[in-house]
Design a protein around this nucleic acid. Structure first.
Lengths: 178, 178
DNA sequence: GGGCGACTAGGCAGATTGTCCACTCATTCA
DNA sequence: TGAATGAGTGGACAATCTGCCTAGTCGCCC
């Protein structure tokens, strides 16, 4: 039918930045909604041949758009009810990486970014309780190279992490732009 | 062999907060490493019977520890190279939720939290370029109820989002604590 | 002692996977 | 214009896995 290839838009290093087409987006949405679907069932739902789904999946994975199908773990279900973002000021001379590397050894640190603005690093941490958060922050402060921290506690998460709207938007945007 | 049940630690509403045991942790780690493994192959790798793996998986899912196996999408691979955290100050009278709801309509907004501190909301956004980030922020500012924003741009992500260390830590912690 | 939950080991029919093939259609390019 | 190329279709194959079931063992708790 419509034979729109999802052509690579540009190359950076050997990493393809690609524009996905509408079928890719539908496939991703379908797999997000019912992740345990097999290739065959996907092809039925999408109304295309099984080989097509297989090829699309292979391409999405080899181009790095889909990085995996790892199980999504709920920290809350494990008893970690408190989420916070901790901004770090660090001793600049030693650089960011050694500090980030040491932060990575704390299990409650789920994510670390180097950032612009008044701080140098920002990390996302979880804890079991507010008191437990104090313990985690203490562990962070003890990391060599960390000078100061300030925390932003997340009280609620009205929009949990999601990428689907973005995925759906890419083909639309590609449509509008030549 | 060791017959440690992963017993529910406490109940909140009808949501079980559970302590997982070491086999659960190994299963999650295995599935994270090779997500497309079937139940049978998992049982071989873990050295337990197929039925056990099946039962463990069912329980982890029904208790909400594993919330799904959705495909992990790389925003970068889709051309969204810029990540930023935007702190919002909002008109308090209208409340957080209406604003969060409107923010949810912007595809580039990947996550929204209500937070403590000087700001009211914090969201994680992505954009294609710095100029594109300006566009996204403009869209956010235009949301009714938003008074002011300040942005923290993530330059690099030395520790990308992960939960595995936490998962591995839970059985250890349960070991230490009575 | 009996009940209960978790685990092992095995069997079975049906469905799915990976991997072929031949063929069509549209686009690109010499 | 005509050949080559890439994407998709529809079908086929053996090998494998799934969902579901049974029976028996082990450890724990009332």
């Amino acid at each position: 039918m419509d034979n729109l290839p999802s052509r690579p838009a540009r190359t950076a290093e050997n990493l393809y930045i690609m524009t996905i087409d509408e079928l890719d987006a539908r496939l991703i949405a379908l797999l997000s909604a019912e992740p345990r679907l097999g290739v065959l069932e996907c092809s039925r739902r999408l109304g295309v041949a099984r080989g097509t789904v297989q090829a699309r999946l292979d391409r999405l994975m080899s181009r790095g758009v889909i990085t995996g199908f790892g199980p999504d773990i709920s920290a809350v279900a494990l008893g970690y009810d408190v989420t916070a973002f901790v901004l770090l000021e660090i001793r600049q001379v030693s650089g960011h990486d050694p500090v980030a590397h040491r932060l990575a050894h704390i299990p409650e640190v789920l994510e670390v970014h180097t950032v612009t603005g008044g701080s140098d690093l920002m990390c996302r941490v979880v804890a079991r309780t507010n008191a437990d958060l104090q313990r985690v922050i203490d562990e962070i402060v003890e990391v060599r190279g960390v000078l100061r921290t300030s925390s932003i506690v997340a009280l609620d998460t009205p929009v949990p992490y999601r990428v689907l709207p973005l995925v759906a938007d890419v083909p639309r945007r590609a449509m509008r732009e030549p």
